[in-house]
Structures are given as structure tokens and as C-alpha cells.
């Protein structure tokens, strides 16, 4: 709040407005080159640790396999994630609006987080078989928590003044929800979805480890038992790339839905 009241603050600087030195990329390149060099010098066998060039070769050779199995894993992730959002966000609105629901359910949701999901996976397998269902369930369970917690925080973040304002405009409960509470909660919901995206990748792979006939988790498992560490690494890299793309896609959606929030944040960072 400066005294020069009528001069607007500097326009927000976009994320790509200035060229930045990609330090992280440089670190990564140095690391990979060092890895390759050392592995070549001491002639490291592939079953201990493959060279980066081996991994790249494997990625190229097994591309079709990775794409097919990546598709399976991605399907599990997307179904589980969407279910978590469809259940989590409405539940969060109920928790935020009703003290009874809050006290009846919220502690259980928080408490359930102490249960390791990987330990539940075999149970689900027994119940649902080797198909898509147990994987989707695990992914949904993993994603559910951050979505609910963050959405609750978001829905509760409407200030008392904001609600007073709403009442004094004669807003109905529906209007208060759609015009005030939901948009106010959006940034938190997106934050929860980003966290959930990362966890859902983990969830899918863990579920595949426990029992599956397809998917990148299955590829990693089979490659391991064949001592094909290069294939394992290729699958891991493919998996990470999928996770990153997912995270990026949610970020992109956030930018589309909440342009005000994204530019506010970049202003705060700058």
C-alpha cells in the first residue's frame, strides 16, 4: 500500500518472461556424464548398474512395450485420480459446511492415513482379483487424502467478512457456494490435486508390484527377475516422465481455470 495510490503496481512478470540459467539441468547433465564415464572406466556389469547410454538404448528398443504398459498404468492412475476427485471434493464441502460431518468423519480420514496402502494392496487383490479394480482402488485411496484435506482447507478459507458481505447482498446458500466458497477453494483444491497426482503414480506401481500382468510396475518386476536393469531403468524413467506430465497438465489446467491465482503467485515469488 504505497502512497502513490493511482499508479498501478508493476504488471506481473510471467514465468517465462526472463531467461533463467537452468542450473538443475546442468547438475543433471554433469551427473549423467560422470555416471557414464565412471561406469565405462571400471567396466561396471549391466546387472549391477547400467550405463546411461544402455538405458537410452533400452528405452528406444522397448518403446512399444513401454507405451503399451504405460497406457495400462496411466489408465489406472486416471480412473483412480478422477474417482478421488469426484468423491473427495464433495466430501470436503460437507466437512467444511457441517460441524457434525466434520467431527464424525474428518478424524477418521486423518487417522486412516496411518494405514500403509501397500499393506492393503494384497487384501484388495484377494477381493477384486488381478484386474484394473484393485489398482484403481489403491490409486484412489492414495489420492483421496491430499484432495480432501486441501479442499477442506480451501472451503474453510472464506473469511468472516466475505460471508458477511454475501449475507448483506442477500445471497442464497447456493449463491454463497458457487460465487464465494468454491472459487475461494479452487487454489487449495488444485494444490491437493497436484500432490495427489504424484501419489497416484506411486499407488499404481505399488498395486502392480503386488499382482498384475501388465503395467509399468509389472515391466519393472519382470525386468528385475531377468537381471535386465537397463529395462528397469527405462521403465522407471518412462514412469517418472508420465508423473511429470500429469503434474504439468494439472498446472496447465490451473492456469486456465485460475489465471488470477497463478499470476498472483508468480508476483509473490518475484
Amino acid at each position: 500500500m504505497t502512497s502513490a495510490d493511482l499508479s498501478p503496481p508493476a504488471p506481473p512478470v510471467g514465468g517465462w518472461g526472463e531467461w533463467r540459467i537452468p542450473y538443475a539441468l546442468i547438475t543433471l547433465v554433469v551427473f549423467v556424464v560422470a555416471w557414464e564415464t565412471i561406469a565405462r572406466i571400471i567396466n561396471l556389469p549391466m546387472y549391477l548398474l547400467p550405463k546411461p547410454t544402455d538405458i537410452v538404448a533400452s528405452l528406444y528398443e522397448n518403446w512399444a512395450l513401454l507405451v503399451v504398459n504405460g497406457g495400462v498404468t496411466l489408465t489406472e492412475i486416471i480412473f483412480g485420480f478422477v474417482i478421488a476427485v469426484l468423491l473427495g471434493v464433495p466430501l470436503a464441502t460437507m466437512i467444511a459446511h457441517s460441524p457434525v460431518v466434520d467431527r464424525a468423519i474428518y478424524p477418521l480420514i486423518v487417522g486412516s492415513q496411518t494405514i500403509p496402502k501397500a499393506a492393503i494392496a494384497p487384501l484388495l487383490l484377494a477381493a477384486f482379483g488381478y484386474g484394473l479394480t484393485p489398482k484403481v482402488t489403491i490409486v484412489a485411496m492414495m489420492s483421496f487424502f491430499p484432495i480432501v484435506i486441501n479442499s477442506v482447507v480451501g472451503f474453510k478459507s472464506a473469511s468472516p467478512e466475505m460471508l458477511h458481505l454475501a449475507y448483506c447482498t442477500g445471497a442464497t446458500q447456493m449463491q454463497i457456494f458457487w460465487l464465494f466458497r468454491l472459487p475461494q477453494a479452487f487454489p487449495s483444491i488444485f494444490a491437493g490435486m497436484k500432490l495427489a497426482a504424484v501419489l497416484s503414480v506411486i499407488g499404481a506401481v505399488v498395486a502392480e508390484f503386488v499382482g498384475s500382468q501388465a503395467g509399468l510396475g509389472y515391466v519393472i518386476l519382470v525386468a528385475g527377475s531377468n537381471f535386465r536393469m537397463d529395462q528397469q531403468f527405462a521403465a522407471i524413467i518412462f514412469l517418472s516422465a508420465m508423473g511429470m506430465i500429469l503434474f504439468w497438465a494439472i498446472g496447465l489446467a490451473e492456469k486456465k481455470v485460475l489465471p488470477w491465482h497463478v499470476s498472483m503467485r508468480s508476483q509473490a515469488d518475484g
Partner: peptide
């Protein structure tokens, strides 16, 4: 009940960021 026939201004501007 809440009086919707008034205009109200608070210390915080309470503008909706979006």
C-alpha cells in the same frame, strides 16, 4: 435477518481475487 438493503464496506476490502 441480514439486511440486504444496505451497502456495506469493511476495513479489509474483501474483493474476490478471481
Amino acid at each position: 435477518k441480514p439486511n440486504s438493503d444496505i451497502g456495506i464496506v469493511f476495513q479489509r476490502d474483501v474483493l474476490l481475487d478471481w
